[in-house]
Amino acid sequence: MKLSLAVTGLLVLLVSASCHAITLKLDPEIDLLVLDGRKISGSLLKGADSLELERGQHQFLFRVEKPCADATHFQSVPMIVTFNASANSVAIRLPSLGNRRERTIFDKALNFQLIDEHGNEIVSIRDHLPQGSDGDLEKAMINYNRNAQAASVARFAMQSASLPAAQMDLDFAWQDASDLPSLQRWFQRFDAATRQRFISWMKTLRTS
């Protein structure tokens, strides 16, 4: 019970801190791979239709995956987009990908749009992830940002490596507690930095 009350209090603080955040809306066809230099865990995004981000500069690595009318499955090349967030919400608007020609153009031209809550386009810089970088995507993005590429952000090259999957599972195990049924939905809405602060607080509570 004490843990539940403490976590609820921490969530109130997180919600208050996120009042000035922006919402990244997640299209189900978009696979978000790396956010601000850190690999995104699929388990954290599962079932979420948005994430909360701090205002300021952000960088996504993503790709599009969708079934096609000709019974094939389209997977785009990994795409990078860098932008400064000042709107209330941000979404990636995809072009028509109904036929092979449109999908080929999309892979080459990166003709998607970043839009705000009013449908206005947000200025962004776009690029492809260099070929041969499909292994460790987080490491690939660190190298990309170190090499001063078109959409690189130097400070994201300084990010430390993500926690191993087993450690992440341990850190998030409290989400499945029977007395905290709604925390996972809230937790998914926060940006990576806020999640890390919350995890640190939880560790402090468990050891106190």
Rank of each mutant, 00 (worst) to 15 (best):
L3E: 03
A6N: 07
V7A: 07
L10C: 03
L11M: 13
V12M: 12
V12S: 12
V12N: 09
L14S: 07
S16I: 09
A17C: 07
C19K: 15
C19P: 02
C19T: 05
A21W: 06
L24G: 06
D27S: 14
E29H: 14
I30L: 13
L32F: 13
L33D: 03
G37S: 07
G37F: 11
I40L: 15
S41A: 14
S41Q: 07
S43I: 04
L44I: 10
L45D: 02
G47K: 10
G47W: 08
S50I: 00
L51K: 13
E52K: 12
L53K: 08
E54R: 14
Q59K: 08
F60Q: 00
F62H: 06
R63I: 03
E65Y: 03
E65A: 14
K66F: 00
A69H: 11
A69G: 08
D70E: 09
A71Q: 14
Q75V: 15
Q75C: 12
V77L: 15
P78Q: 06
P78C: 12
V81W: 06
V81K: 01
A85E: 05
A87R: 04
A91Y: 00
A91H: 08
R93S: 14
L94G: 03
P95C: 10
P95T: 02
S96N: 11
S96L: 08
L97F: 10
G98C: 07
G98Q: 12
N99T: 06
N99M: 02
R100T: 00
R101E: 11
R101K: 14
E102D: 07
E102Y: 08
F106H: 05
K108M: 05
K108Y: 05
A109L: 11
A109M: 11
L114Y: 04
L114K: 05
I115E: 12
D116P: 00
E117Y: 05
G119K: 11
N120Q: 15
N120C: 12
E121I: 06
E121Y: 00
V123L: 13
V123R: 13
S124I: 09
S124W: 09
I125D: 02
I125H: 10
R126H: 10
H128I: 04
Q131N: 11
G132E: 00
G132M: 09
G135Q: 15
G135T: 00
M141G: 01
M141R: 04
N143F: 05
N145Q: 04
R146M: 12
A148C: 07
A150S: 10
S152E: 03
A154Y: 10
A154N: 05
R155F: 08
R155H: 11
F156W: 14
S160K: 13
S160I: 02
A161S: 10
A161K: 13
S162Q: 08
A165Y: 04
Q167T: 03
Q167W: 08
M168W: 12
D169E: 11
D171Y: 10
W174K: 06
D176Y: 10
D176W: 07
S178K: 13
S178W: 09
D179Y: 14
L180M: 14
S182R: 09
L183Q: 03
R185A: 15
F187Q: 07
F190W: 09
T194L: 13
Q196A: 15
Q196H: 11
F198R: 02
I199N: 12
W201M: 12
W201N: 03
M202A: 06
R206C: 06
R206D: 09
